[in-house]
Structure formats: structure tokens, C-alpha cells
Design a protein around this nucleic acid. Structure first.
Lengths: 325, 325
DNA sequence: TTGTATGCGTTATCAA
DNA sequence: TTGATAACGCATACAA
């Protein structure tokens, strides 16, 4: 014990926590002893007293960690790695497993909880809990909870705005599963911006389908048949955009010279590696994680807000879009 | 307090932990009270007594969580979500941040540590620690530590074996950064298997380069120029394989009819979406996580082994390979 | 079968 | 400026 090296257990505590009421000389002695024994204060015991564990739980259902990881990183940033540690739990879409994890987290006395759903649609609230909860990415279905989500309408608007600014006039939209709110919202944003410009949607309709490259390819083929004169395609995800690019190449249409392509998600592995690299919309998930952490932090002593708060998207410009000459 | 509903604090404890020395009737009463107050035992306090926190740390440097997440899931599986929770910490390749996280984890009294490096090459040992440590994916540079890694030599052998069994005789190999041990090992496994069959490597050399689609494309072009008669390409990663496929399509070579392609990693987003879907080698990272958890669990009361242990790879057959007629 | 008392490693309150 | 002591919430050995 560090106390073997001189002083009482109480003074040692004060010295280590730099309380003012301790002689500099004594403090030095204590610190030295602590180093020598590579003493590390027991956070569990501290937590017992302070009623604060210095941990938060991140409860996700997002298998691949595609959304959870950026959110985790943002949260880590905001908390500071020495202040708060994060329990990452994956429920894998299984309700029972979620209950299990929740029990474990509560009995570990986490100071707060961030819940990340599998898809950007409302998910069931966890109900009243003894700690503050923030729903990130997927909002809670209970308006009394606080949810932080990305602005899909704004993202759609931003994408089309970028194409318009590049002089594109015949813009089509291929997107994923229409049962996803995100698909609907992105389409709405796109249509809004087109309407504002007085432009029609090329291809006569929004091409809803699935979140896959295969659908991106299929839809592009149909679209080209229906309307060969398009000069830009807004894809609802980077996966879809990859499919779009594939068929455009097959049809010998130059990207971006003849047709510009913009994706959604900024999923690096897909966007950066694309031919050409993909201009896309980034949902700012790290920012979302950071904000969630801040809200949680504030809520721990204060009170948590409620409702749905929105994070703005960001345009990432690469080479798949360019001004039309 | 649950004790307000009848009995002493000690009996309540016994009842909840189903110790035999308590009347059934009393136990029922206690349990009922506990439910009513939605009582949840304070794991921190328990840990203080039992000297076991029921937590482990997963310390990673793998930004995108591409390797860490499957490992985490495997570990979660093996531990059981109600027994052990996992702290996930990302050091982001920063040594200082790693020290910070390490301190935090130790002061939280984790029962063990799993360390996942950024790349599958040896990484610096953390040295003597008061808890058992397992290095997963990236081995420790200290042979006294216990490391669990994937079998890249075996993976290379498996890939080529599959191609040979499908009647391919002119097999080329395009892979990533030669400074990666994994690139060297996969190549060695491939060459081994070819030699065993008495076959030469098509394309005259192993095409080392970068772990990117762009390199996959570039290398394929050069390869085809050098040796137009190849009937199979083993790509060192799924990313590279995507680039290979891209150029093969451009050159109007049918996959798999004329040229079979096999990847490495089984990175779903790339492999499943490929045209055609990619046959690939899965490194069994979840299995690795599961095993790491088991070893850690065993080490907590017993003693940890040392050296490097290897997990076998698995062939995932999709449509980019098929028997040659 | 139940209750009392002690201690786990800290911090906080008080007295010395 | 320091040290003794009582919590924190639980598990356990022991007394009742």
C-alpha cells in the first residue's frame, strides 16, 4: 500500500487528489511512493462514494458497427478518455439480448446510456430508467425522450443543390428501401430543392428499391432506358452509387463529364475506392456522438431535454461530380 | 431498500443469491420486494468484495472497427452478456492515448485485457500488467505474451487450393503492401500450394502494391499484358479483388467462366455486392474473439499461456469461382 | 432460519 | 497540516 511509505491513508488520498490542505513535501513523498508501487486508485470504490461510476453504456443494434463506431469515437472525444469509459454492447436486433445488456449496464451503475438503433427510424423507447438516456441515429418512439438524429431531408437537399450548382438540369434519384424513413426524407429533400429551382425530376419517379449495389445497377439500367438524357444521378447511399457507376461505365457514359454521380453516407471503403472517387453526403456521425456525450454529461447533474434534435449533413466533394461545361 | 420489505440486509442478500440457508417463503418475499423496487444489485460494491469487476477491456487501434467488431462480438458471446461487459477503447494509433486508456481500464479493475492492433504484424508488448492480457489479430513482440492470430499462410494455401480443385492452372496473385506480414504470408501459402501441384505462378511474380481497389485495377492491367492467358486471380483482399473484377469486365473477360477470382477477408459489403459475388477467405475473427475470451476467462484463476496461437481460415464460396469445363 | 458485525478501497468530516 | 473514523452497498463468517 502506498501508505506504507510514510503517512496515513487519509493524507495519501488528499495528496493524490491535490487537496490544498497538505504540505508540498508530504505530497511529493506520497506521489513518489504511488509511482514506485504503480498504484492506481480503485475507481469502483470511488464510485461507491461519489455515486458516479464514470462509465456510460452504448447500446447498439447495428451489427456491423457502421454507425456505432463513429458515434463511439465522437463520444470518447467529448468525454475524455481519462474521465469516462464506454461499455459497448451489441443487442444484434434481439429484444431479449437488449434487456440482458440493459440489466448488466444498470447494475454496473453507468452514469448514462446512448442507444443506437439499427436503422434511422423510430425505435421503441426503453421507458423510465434511473439514468439519462439519449437515442442516437434512431429516434425513440416516445417524444418525452431525447433523440439525436441526422437531417436526411437536409442531406437530400444538399446533394441536389450541389448538382444544380454544377449546372445539372436533368437529375434523377435512385434510392433504397421505401419503408425506411431515411429514404423518404432524402427523396423529399431532393424534390424540394428541384421544385425550388423549377426543375422536374428526371426519370419520372424516385426509384425506390433496396440498399444494394445490385439495385443501383438495375435501377440505372431502367432509368437509362426511360430517360437517356440525364446528366446527374443522386444515389441514396454509397452502395447504390457504386452500382450506378458500374452501369454508367458499361454504357460508356463518362463520369462526371456526361453524368455526375453523388452518393450518401461517405462510407470510405466504398466512396474513396470508387472509379472515380465519389462525391457524397456525410451524416456527421462523429459530431452526433460528440453531441450525445455532451448532452449526457449535462444531463447527469441537470435535467435532460426531450424531443428530436437534428445534426446537419456535410458535402464531401470528390471527382464524381464536376461543373458541366 | 429492498430490506424495507421485511427482513435484514443479510438475509436479503442470501435470498437474492439463492443461498440454500433461507426459507422459501422468505425468499419469495424478498424477490417480490426487489421486483417492486426494481432493485438492481450494485456490481461496483460486489466487485469491491469479490475483487472481480466482471469487466474486460478491449483496447484497439483499428479505426474503422473492421477487425475489432467481430472480435468484440465473439468475446461477448463467450463471456455471456450478463456475466461480463466489455469496455471498448480506441487508441487511434496514438501511443499516448493508448497509455491513457490503459490507465483508465486498470483503475476500473478490469479482469483482463484484449489488445487488437491496427495491422496483422507484431506490435509492442504492454509489458507486465496486473491482469492477464491477450493480443488478438496483431501478435505481441514479446514471446512471453499470449497472442492469437489468423493463419495467413493457411489462408493463401486454401485460396489456391480451391482454384486448383476447380481446374485452374494459370493462377496469378495480386496483393497489398509488401511490408505487411500478412501479404507475405498469404503469398507464401499460395506459392506453397502451387509448388505442391507443380504449377508455376502465372504473371511471373507476386504483384505486391497497396490494399486498394486502384491497385487491384492497375495490377490487373499489367498482369493481363504480361500474361493474357491466366485463368484465375487470387487477390490478397476483397478490396483488391473488386479492382480486379472491374478491369476484367472492361476487358470483356467472363468471371468465372474465363477467369476465376477469389478474395480475402470476407468483408460483406464488398464481397456480397460484387459482380459476381465474391468467393473469399474468411479469417474467422469472431472465432478468434471467442477464443480470446475463453483464454482470458481461464487465465483469470489459472495462469496464462504464452506464444502465438493460430486460428484457421474458412473458405466462403460464392459465384466468382466455378469449375473450369 | 435469520440477524449482527466486519471489511472491500476510497473520500469526507471532523478532531487533534 | 495530519490522522482517526464513518460512510458507500454489498457478501460473508459467525452468533443468535
Amino acid at each position: 500500500m502506498a501508505k506504507l511509505a510514510g503517512v496515513s491513508i487519509a493524507t495519501a488520498s488528499k495528496a493524490l487528489n491535490n487537496q490544498p490542505q497538505v504540505r508540498a513535501e508530504t505530497r511529493a513523498k506520497v506521489i513518489q511512493a504511488a509511482e514506485a508501487l504503480s498504484f492506481s486508485p480503485n475507481t469502483l470504490a470511488q464510485g461507491l462514494i461519489t455515486q458516479r461510476s464514470g462509465t456510460v453504456g452504448l447500446l447498439t443494434s447495428d451489427l456491423e458497427g457502421r454507425f456505432s463506431i463513429p458515434i463511439l469515437m465522437g463520444a470518447e472525444d467529448a468525454f475524455g478518455s481519462d474521465q469516462t469509459s464506454v461499455f459497448l454492447c451489441d443487442a444484434r436486433g434481439d429484444n431479449l439480448r437488449e434487456r440482458h445488456h440493459l440489466r448488466a449496464l444498470l447494475s454496473r451503475r453507468v452514469d448514462g446510456l446512448i442507444v443506437v438503433g439499427a436503422r434511422p427510424d423510430a425505435r421503441p423507447s426503453l421507458g423510465e430508467l434511473p439514468v439519462p438516456v439519449i437515442y442516437a441515429y434512431s429516434p425513440s418512439d416516445n417524444p418525452a425522450d431525447l433523440s439525436l438524429v441526422t437531417d436526411n431531408v437536409g442531406g437530400g437537399r444538399l446533394a441536389v443543390d450541389h448538382l444544380i450548382r454544377h449546372g445539372r438540369r436533368r437529375i434523377a434519384h435512385i434510392t433504397g428501401d421505401p419503408s425506411y424513413g431515411a429514404a423518404q426524407d432524402r427523396a423529399r429533400g431532393a424534390l424540394d430543392r428541384l421544385a425550388q429551382e423549377g426543375l422536374p425530376l428526371a426519370g419520372d419517379q424516385v426509384w425506390f428499391g433496396a440498399w444494394s449495389e445490385a439495385w443501383g445497377r438495375g435501377a440505372t439500367r431502367m432509368l437509362l432506358q426511360r430517360d437517356p438524357g440525364i446528366d446527374a444521378i443522386f444515389a441514396g447511399s454509397d452502395e447504390i452509387a457504386r452500382g450506378v457507376l458500374d452501369v454508367l461505365h458499361q454504357e460508356k457514359l463518362a463520369v462526371p463529364a456526361q453524368v455526375a454521380v453523388i452518393g450518401f453516407d461517405n462510407w470510405n471503403i466504398l466512396a474513396v475506392n470508387a472509379r472515380p472517387p465519389l462525391t457524397t453526403i456525410d451524416m456527421n456521425l462523429e459530431e452526433l456522438g460528440r453531441l450525445a456525450a455532451q448532452r449526457l454529461f449535462a444531463a447527469i447533474d441537470g435535467t435532460l431535454g426531450s424531443g428530436i434534435e437534428t445534426i446537419g449533413p456535410r458535402l464531401i466533394t470528390r471527382e464524381s461530380t464536376a461543373p458541366l461545361d
